[in-house]
Nucleic acid binder design. Structure first.
Lengths: 202, 202
DNA sequence: CCAATAAGATAGTAATCAATTACTATCTTA
DNA sequence: TAAGATAGTAATTGATTACTATCTTATTGG
């Protein structure tokens, strides 16, 4: 099954489309990605895209859905193979950062989507993703407290929000610098400060 | 000098334009703000805008410049009227959050600008803003260490990055929720966790 | 091997948008 | 108060974009 074949079955073509958009988002402003640009990247004519998606928004929705599934699957796996709640948090963090470094277009797509003021289906997917992620985090933090690994005085929800916010902030700052490697460098240092904020005082 | 006067002098007209764009950015995706929409908000015809700005990018540049000046001025003032480094950090944080809550279009404009892949003049202004902001923070943190208020073991640069990241992350999450009041609610709770991460152990 | 159908190519359309142009109204000052 | 400078209007232009109608080619099951 060589990937350069024309006439792909519909579901494969849709998967390749998602891939192409994630790639393009790493290279340019996602809100300026045209259907023509997507088609060109896939060596397809622009009109052919509309054989597989009813409209452009449906393409975006598919991309966001793929991102959400990937991220939850990867971080879940990382957390479940960790010995303690705190190490699970760290494993989720590292996995999350790795995923973004591997696909720099991903945060750009998410940011672009949440810029929209209307409630789009894609935005709803992101909301569900984040609230699920936050739930997992605060459960882990509570577990850490009861196991005596984390300080009982901390606000679990706030700590979960800060965990997610830390990642988002690091991503924004590397986006601003135009250097994804900065993310890899800054992330562990920021996490060290965060860890100190939730751990029991020694 | 009623603001609804026609025939404003050029510099006033430019200032009003910046105001209009910041307002519009609170209501819609900044990348979809058209020159026609800006003109309509100002009760002006679209073409008239180009009497005062050579092109659309120049409008954006003016808006970003205004934001940067405002933010630095306000946080500087807040920090200088604080008793200790840690309280200065908290004052800057609160001031920053207040500024965003008052003008919800601001983070949207900044996010929109840094989504662009090219190096625009506006993006350069944001980079300068953030690096100046980070510098101020790490100096404050160093001062806090030497005064025995903050833990000497923490990484000042990472703590500064996390400070900024925390704000950016909180903003993104309130943007996602479509509720700016969430920012006001979550901010102090997240800051409490952050404070615990840098303060000396009691 | 041959229809039936799925997938792609080609060539459009209507709408939108930044920018420009020719002209007019208003302000300022010598 | 006349004349130049400044600010605004209305209409248009060329480029771009999402989407579609029609024709062509490849794939596949009987």
């Amino acid at each position: 099954m060589q990937p350069s074949t024309k006439h792909l079955p519909a579901d494969e073509r849709r998967a390749v489309t998602v891939e192409a958009v994630v790639e393009l988002a790493a290279e340019q402003n996602p809100s300026e990605i045209t259907t023509a640009a997507i088609a060109k990247r896939m060596h397809l004519t622009q009109g052919a895209l509309f054989r597989h998606f009813p409209n452009k928004d449906a393409i975006w929705q598919a991309v966001i859905k793929w991102i959400a599934e990937q991220l939850l699957a990867r971080t879940d796996k990382a957390a479940s193979s960790s010995a303690s709640p705190l190490s699970a948090l760290e494993a989720m963090f590292i996995t999350h950062i790795d995923f973004i470094v591997k696909h720099p277009g991903i945060p750009r797509m998410l940011l672009s989507e949440l810029q929209r003021h209307e409630e789009t289906p894609a935005k709803t997917i992101v909301q569900t993703l984040i609230s699920g992620y936050r739930k997992r985090l605060s459960i882990l933090i509570d577990k850490g407290k009861s196991q005596g690994e984390l300080d009982k005085g901390i606000d679990s929800e706030a700590a979960a929000t800060l965990f997610i916010g830390m990642i988002q902030g690091l991503v924004i700052q590397s986006l601003l610098a135009g250097d994804i490697e900065q993310l890899r460098k800054d992330a562990p240092r920021a996490f060290a400060v965060y860890r100190r904020g939730i751990r029991i005082c020694k």
